[in-house]
Design a binder for these strands. Sequence first.
DNA 1: ACTTTGAGCGTACACCTGTAAGCTAATTTA
DNA 2: TAAATTAGCTTACAGGTGTACGCTCAAAGT
Lengths: 205, 205
Amino acid sequence: MMGIRAQQKEKTRRALVDAAFNQLNAERSFSSLSLREVAREAKIAPTSFYRHFKDMNELGLTMVDEGGLTLRQMMRKGRQRAEAGGSVIRISVDTFMEVLESNPNVFRILLHERSGTSAPFRAAVAREIEHFISELAHYTEATAKRSPELAHAQAEALVTLVFNAGAAALDMKRVDRKALADRLVIQLRMVAMGSEALQLKLDKR
Amino acid sequence: MMGIRAQQKEKTRRALVDAAFNQLNAERSFSSLSLREVAREAKIAPTSFYRHFKDMNELGLTMVDEGGLTLRQMMRKGRQRAEAGGSVIRISVDTFMEVLESNPNVFRILLHERSGTSAPFRAAVAREIEHFISELAHYTEATAKRSPELAHAQAEALVTLVFNAGAAALDMKRVDRKALADRLVIQLRMVAMGSEALQLKLDKR
DNA sequence: ACTTTGAGCGTACACCTGTAAGCTAATTTA
DNA sequence: TAAATTAGCTTACAGGTGTACGCTCAAAGT
């Protein structure tokens, strides 16, 4: 069991992480947050920050990891919905858009730091995305009988298109997102059908 | 004709733009540059900066515009190469990778500011990318007989995949870029083939 | 009961930032 | 040739930054 001291510490740590997430928005990236701002929002003295994180980078990497986890969990829930029947692509896109709407800041940090200036951050985001890709590749390999290489290339393309659409959606109102989602579904179908055709070619030889 | 005064001014302006481009690298984004740093690199006093740009944003937008232009010009050259025969996709990817290698900083600012914190920047980059997309969509519509909507969706998917691969390539050594380019070609073919199949479906009805 | 630990605080410092104000000197204009 | 314009400079200031240092005082350990 946690002592009341460790509990308080955990609470403050959460306050810091939440404070940082709350300060993110379309005009504010993680790297533009200062240690002092985050501490202020979490209502602790700037110097107390160091009791929890070595520096801002450590906080940021924590956020990326947490974000990736949150995302995967929510997409997993979405996949369960798809098992009940219907287009996997359509349902996955809808799930993705819902997640995007309810957790925009989780996306912001992933999307921004993916092309950010810190190599460790880029690596951390790449790791999270790779996780998505291989989960999807495994699924495709099993259900659509693809070779491992083709399944991976296909999954990578699908995830790329989805994330990219996500970035665009962040700037949009709900009405425009609908059109975006529809176009995204078409693009994903293109990839799926093209991959199928390529696989057939390979099988014929 | 330009007076010697206007000439000197233009020279300093270029020095500022070049200084800013030169300071960009994997660890340094435009938004992390300070007015003073840029002025220092261009060898003028910080306050003289204002004789050329209202603020750093104005300089940055200039860079995005210049970058987009450079990019389009170089891709156009590549397309001429493709007319001599061979796979359009393969040749375009190779051209893209060459441009990426010789102008990495032009890409950095586009890729980074695409998901940056300034709405005007994001809009400027989106405009440049949209330009690519519609050029490509027009080409596809003409040569592959696609409906306008499908051509646009296809072109958007292709450009998305290419730019995304470009971002990944920036972090790689030449050897790894080869593998990336090969996978990219496969993914682009998936999209092209899938789009073809979708178009056929439409035509049948 | 005593000591040790450690989360959080206040003060302080050196450094960097954007930019306002006003000057100089060379070019351009009249 | 005299007046007006202007690119670039120096100086100056207020405000933000990360973080070193040393203190407090409640909880945990013994």
